[in-house]
Each structure stands twice: as structure tokens, then as C-alpha cells.
């Protein structure tokens, strides 16, 4: 731990920094990761680069927004539960206020002709974004027949019965676990004494 920063950050330090990240973290996702790294790792040295990488791996396992998970996890390490809750609230606050204002404007004007036409463009844009995100996910997915099968089964189940997505997610997770368990089993059976590297 030779790289430990001088002096522990207080809750106020953490909250203030998170408020800043929450206010300027436009773009979302991995673009914000660079911002977080430069603020917390390079500038303030609250954690080492290696720990940061570690936190990224852990954050990807939790549900929900990746950047929120990452920052919440870091805040917990820096100051415990209280710091985590306070800092996350600070992180979300700027967006929360901004979206409330925008929601108020939108709901007041949604019957206006111009706004309705703008909405048509906006909806199309969101559909385009969803397609782009799907594309990214497909590229990141491991190319394995098992993935194809899970996807196909989910598609058919959704099409035929319109099952609640939560059940599909649970089933996908179970299928992934079963696959690894079965492969571990067959590995033990077929090639028992492969030298471990």
C-alpha cells in the first residue's frame, strides 16, 4: 500500500466530488469511466489504478447503471455505508433536478403540434439508439452456440407467451450456470490429467 493517498477523504469531500461528476458526466457508460478515473485516481488519488480496475470488474456484476455501481462501490470503500448513500444521492441529484424541469416542460406542452412532431423524431431516435446498444451487446457477447440457443429460446418464449422479462432473465442466468457446471463435469470426465499451466 505504498501508493496510499495522504489523509482519508471526508464524507463532504466525497459528496462534493460526486456532485461534480454527476453534473458533468454527460454521455454515460464508458465515456464517464475516463472522467471518474481522472477525478478519483489521478487527481485525488483516493484509490490506486489497480483497485480501480478491480472495482470496474465488480461493478459489471451488479444490476443497474454501471457508473452508479462503480461510484457507489468506491464510496463504500472510502467511507462505508453512509458515504455510499450520501455520495450516490449527490451523484444523481443534478440529473434528477434537470429531468424534473424537462418533465414539467414536456408534460405542459405535449399537446402542442410542434412538440408532437418533435416527439416523432425523438421516438425514432430512441429506437435507433436501442438498435445501436443491441449491436454493441452482440459484439461483446461470447460467440458460442450456447448463447445463440439461449437467445433463440428467449425469443420464441417471448413471442409465443409474452412471458414476464424477469422470468426470462432468471432462466438465462440459470442456463449459463448449468452450462458451466455441465462443461466442468465433462472436462473432468474426458480429460482427467491435463497438466495445469
Amino acid at each position: 500500500m505504498q501508493m496510499d493517498p495522504p489523509g482519508e477523504p471526508t464524507w463532504w469531500d466525497i459528496t462534493r466530488t460526486y456532485l461534480k461528476i454527476g453534473a458533468i458526466g454527460f454521455g454515460g457508460g464508458y465515456a464517464v469511466v475516463e472522467l471518474i478515473q481522472s477525478e478519483l485516481v489521478v487527481k485525488r488519488r483516493w484509490l490506486t489504478a489497480q483497485r480501480f480496475q478491480n472495482m470496474i470488474a465488480l461493478s459489471e456484476m451488479a444490476p443497474g447503471a454501471f457508473t452508479v455501481n462503480l461510484l457507489a462501490g468506491i464510496a463504500y470503500r472510502l467511507g462505508g455505508m453512509g458515504a455510499m448513500i450520501l455520495a450516490t444521492a449527490a451523484l444523481i441529484l443534478p440529473s434528477f433536478v434537470l429531468i424534473l424541469v424537462l418533465a414539467g416542460i414536456f408534460l405542459a406542452w405535449q399537446d402542442n403540434m410542434l412538440v408532437q412532431s418533435a416527439m416523432k423524431g425523438l421516438t425514432a431516435g430512441v429506437v435507433g439508439l436501442l438498435i445501436a446498444v443491441v449491436w454493441d451487446l452482440v459484439k461483446r457477447a461470447p460467440t458460442h452456440w450456447c448463447c445463440l440457443v439461449i437467445g433463440l429460446v428467449a425469443f420464441l418464449l417471448e413471442l409465443a407467451f409474452s412471458i414476464n422479462p424477469i422470468w426470462l432473465i432468471l432462466m438465462g442466468g440459470m442456463a449459463g450456470a448449468i452450462k458451466v457446471w455441465a462443461m466442468g463435469f465433462s472436462r473432468k470426465g474426458s480429460t482427467p490429467d491435463l497438466p495445469t499451466r
Binding site: V133, L137, C147, L148, G151, P165, I169, M171, A175, G176
Partner: peptide, 14 residues
Amino acid sequence: AVLHGILPVVVVLM
């Protein structure tokens, strides 16, 4: 492994 199983489902849902 669990996350890899969820990923295709997420793609379909999206």
C-alpha cells in the same frame, strides 16, 4: 457464466 447466460436474453428483450 450467469451473466453470459443473461446477455442473450437482454439482447432479445431490447
